[in-house]
Simulated assay, not measured.
Amino acid sequence: MNHKINVILFGIGTIGSALINKILRERKDLILDAKIDIRVPIITNATVAFFEKEGANFSWEANFIQFGVPFKLDDVMLYIMENKLENVVIVDATASTQLAAAYLDFIRNGFNLVSINETLQFLPDSFEKGIRFLAETHKVEYTFVNTMRSKVLAIEELYEAIVEIAEKQRPISIN
């Protein structure tokens, strides 16, 4: 049985788009080799979100254009709860301080968080320390990937962070 991970992606710029494409390219091998199934049921840009439809073929760019709807953060949270998504990994590939302000809510709801949000570097150190402390107390993962070095490297690090979270959360099977 495959261990399912639900990635909620905020931001489909260069890095976010490349991350989705990498997940799609690597998906079959990851399922076969590691028994991990990474899904991307929600994809957003700054104003529009695509919420995965049951039975629809996954062509994220076409679906985003055709089925994307204006959204608020509450819509995303409601979708996660109504669809009983488990093993949620929020990926923040934006430069939004507004989204960064929601990190506390994400973590309190038990969601893992991977971020490349460069605005975090300009917030007080206490912000990230608070996020790390809260993540630790809620037993979820928090990873910040610095994109200053290379966008290609950032995509790899984001993907690896998601896979690492999946591996840590995988139920232990007793034979």
Results as ranks from 00 to 15, higher is better:
residue 170 R to S: 13
residue 29 D to W: 02
residue 47 T to W: 05
residue 174 I to A: 12
residue 156 E to C: 02
residue 16 G to V: 00
residue 61 E to C: 01
residue 61 E to I: 14
residue 52 E to S: 11
residue 43 I to D: 04
residue 175 N to A: 06
residue 48 V to S: 09
residue 130 G to S: 11
residue 115 S to H: 02
residue 118 E to G: 10
residue 145 V to P: 01
residue 132 R to Y: 03
residue 74 D to Y: 06
residue 68 G to M: 08
residue 64 F to N: 02
residue 79 Y to N: 06
residue 87 N to C: 11
residue 3 H to E: 06
residue 149 R to W: 10
residue 82 E to F: 11
residue 103 Y to K: 02
residue 160 E to N: 14
residue 77 M to F: 15
residue 161 A to P: 04
residue 29 D to Q: 12
residue 19 L to H: 02
residue 91 V to N: 04
residue 125 D to E: 09
residue 11 G to Y: 04
residue 139 K to N: 13
residue 23 I to G: 00
residue 96 S to Y: 04
residue 153 L to M: 07
residue 59 S to L: 12
residue 164 E to Q: 12
residue 60 W to M: 06
residue 165 I to L: 07
residue 58 F to K: 05
residue 143 T to Y: 15
residue 173 S to Q: 11
residue 69 V to H: 05
residue 86 E to Q: 12
residue 15 I to T: 12
residue 132 R to E: 15
residue 88 V to M: 04
residue 110 G to R: 00
residue 166 A to K: 03
residue 37 D to V: 08
residue 156 E to H: 08
residue 152 V to A: 14
residue 171 P to G: 13
residue 12 I to T: 14
residue 25 R to F: 13
residue 127 F to W: 09
residue 57 N to V: 13
residue 19 L to V: 04
residue 166 A to I: 12
residue 175 N to Q: 07
residue 18 A to T: 14
residue 44 T to C: 14
residue 83 N to F: 08
residue 146 N to T: 09
residue 4 K to L: 06
residue 175 N to T: 08
residue 59 S to N: 13
residue 52 E to Y: 10
residue 93 A to S: 15
residue 132 R to S: 05
residue 41 P to A: 08
residue 47 T to N: 09
residue 76 V to T: 11
residue 67 F to L: 08
residue 51 F to L: 11
residue 52 E to M: 11
residue 158 L to E: 01
residue 124 P to K: 10
residue 25 R to T: 14
residue 52 E to F: 09
residue 139 K to Q: 10
residue 171 P to R: 05
residue 20 I to T: 11
residue 153 L to Q: 08
residue 52 E to L: 09
residue 75 D to C: 03
residue 128 E to I: 12
residue 71 F to N: 01
residue 150 S to R: 02
residue 66 Q to W: 04
residue 9 L to C: 02
residue 26 E to A: 02
residue 99 L to R: 05
residue 94 T to C: 06
residue 31 I to Q: 13
residue 9 L to Q: 04
residue 161 A to V: 09
residue 89 V to A: 07
residue 170 R to I: 13
residue 166 A to V: 10
residue 156 E to K: 02
residue 72 K to E: 15
residue 50 F to I: 05
residue 133 F to A: 10
residue 13 G to F: 06
residue 4 K to E: 15
residue 48 V to G: 01
residue 32 L to E: 15
residue 91 V to W: 02
residue 41 P to V: 12
residue 127 F to R: 05
residue 72 K to Q: 14
residue 98 Q to T: 15
residue 112 N to R: 03
residue 150 S to M: 05
residue 113 L to A: 10
residue 56 A to T: 10
residue 166 A to W: 06
residue 6 N to C: 03
residue 28 K to I: 13
residue 84 K to M: 07
residue 53 K to Q: 13
residue 163 V to D: 05
residue 106 F to P: 00
residue 129 K to P: 01
residue 159 Y to W: 07
residue 7 V to K: 00
residue 40 V to P: 06
